[in-house]
Write a protein that binds this DNA or RNA. Structure first.
Lengths: 191, 191
DNA sequence: TGAAGCCGTTGACTTAAGTTAAGAAAGACC
DNA sequence: GGTCTTTCTTAACTTAAGTCAACGGCTTCA
C-alpha cells in the first residue's frame, strides 16, 4: 500500500477495495518548499492538510510578535479554525520544512462522508479522543513551571527541538527566548 | 418542547417526529445534590453527562492538591476521557451545585448513531468546532499574564466567580489562591 | 571580503508569583 | 451559643521570568 492516507486509515478501519479505489482517486497530494505560507491572517481558508512528511507551524501576530500555537508534523491533520466557514483566518500557517501533504476541501469531505459514513464515525471518535487528550495536556500545562513545560516537550516531542528554531519553541511554550535560554543553561548545569 | 436535550439539538438539526419520540423515550434524567462525586480517580466510567442545570467540576490530585481542570455548566457535555474505554479515570467529577443532567452511555450512543446518523454528523462537526476553539483559547492562555487570565475569565464566564469558591478558580487558572487574592486586590486598587 | 541580519546567550534590573505563616471572616455542626 | 472548618487575605521572604541592552557566532548577499 503506497498511499499514506490509506495506510493511516487502515490503522482504524478495514480498507475495502471500493474505499481504496475511491480514496486513491481523490487524494490530492501537494508539496511545499520550506518557508511557504499556506494561510495568511485575514484570508479565507478552504483547505485542510494531512501531513505526510514535514512540519507546518501555525502562529498569529500580537503586537507585531509571532506567537506559535502549534507545530504540526507527520500523520497530523491541520484544520484551520476558519476552514470552510468563510470567516477570515486569525492566524498563519507556514511550512518550516519542505512538506508533503494530502489536501482536503469541505466539498471533498462531504462527498467522502456520504459515500463512506464509517469515515465520519472514525473522525468523530478520533476527534473526541484528541479533544480529551488536549484537555488533559492543557491541565498539565496550566500548573507546570516553565522548566517543566520545556522538559515535557523534550520528552514528548524531542524531534521538534531539532526541527524548529529556539525562539519559535519559546513562543510555543509561552515564554521569552531569553527565559528558554536560561532554562536550558540551568538544566545543563544540574546534570 | 419541554425536553432540554431536544431543545439543544433543535438549534442544529431539524427535529423529526420520529427523532423526538426516540429521544424522549431514551432520555435519562438524573439529579445530584451539591457535593456528589460522580466519578473518582481509579474508577471506570461508563456514563457521560449533559448538564441541564448546575455545575460539575473536574479535577485531579497532584501531591495531595486539587487541580481544577474544568467547570462544566448548563448546555455542556461532560465526557470523561476514560468514558467507555475501561481505563481507570485519572480525575474526579464533582457537583459543586445541585445538578440536573441527561445521562448517556456508550451503548446508548451507538444505538442513537445507528438510528440517526445525522446526530453523529452533528457531533463530529460540533467536536471539530469545539476543538478549534480549544486550541485558540489555549494559545491565548499560554501567553497571557495571570492577571490577564483572570480578567478573561471575568469577561467570558462571569457566573463562575459567583458559583465556585476562589481557591478552585485559582487552581483552574493555574495559580495559587494567594496570587489570585493579590491580583484581585491589584485590580480593585486600579479602579 | 566585508556589511547586514538573524539567532542565541549573558548580565543587570524590575516585577510578580511561589512559599510559609498567621490571622480574620463566614458557615456548618453540635 | 460556641467550636471547628473552610475560605480568603495579608505580610515577609525567596525565586524566577520579563525587560532592556550588549555581544559573539553564523549565514547571506552584495
Amino acid at each position: 500500500m503506497d498511499n499514506e492516507i490509506l495506510k493511516y486509515l487502515s490503522k482504524y478501519i478495514p480498507i475495502t477495495k471500493e474505499l481504496e479505489e475511491e480514496i486513491s482517486k481523490i487524494e490530492f497530494i501537494k508539496c511545499f518548499d520550506k518557508g511557504t505560507v499556506l494561510l495568511e491572517e485575514g484570508k479565507i481558508s478552504n483547505e485542510c492538510y494531512f501531513i505526510i512528511k514535514g512540519c507546518i507551524r501555525s502562529f498569529y501576530l500580537k503586537d507585531g510578535e509571532e506567537r506559535t500555537t502549534e507545530f504540526h508534523t507527520e500523520e497530523q491533520a491541520v484544520v484551520p479554525s476558519a476552514y470552510g466557514s468563510n470567516v477570515p483566518s486569525e492566524y498563519y500557517l507556514e511550512c518550516i520544512e519542505d512538506t508533503i501533504t494530502g489536501v482536503g476541501t469541505p466539498e471533498l469531505e462531504t462527498e467522502i462522508y456520504q459515500k463512506f459514513p464509517q469515515i465520519e464515525s472514525l473522525n468523530r471518535a478520533l476527534g473526541e479522543a484528541i479533544m480529551a487528550k488536549q484537555q488533559d495536556s492543557f491541565a498539565e500545562f496550566k500548573m507546570a513551571s516553565h522548566e517543566e513545560k520545556y522538559l515535557a516537550l523534550l520528552k514528548n516531542r524531542p524531534d521538534l527541538l531539532q526541527r524548529a528554531p529556539q525562539h519559535q519553541i519559546a513562543s510555543y511554550l509561552g515564554i521569552k527566548p531569553e527565559s528558554l535560554s536560561r532554562i536550558r543553561k540551568r538544566i545543563m548545569n544540574q546534570k
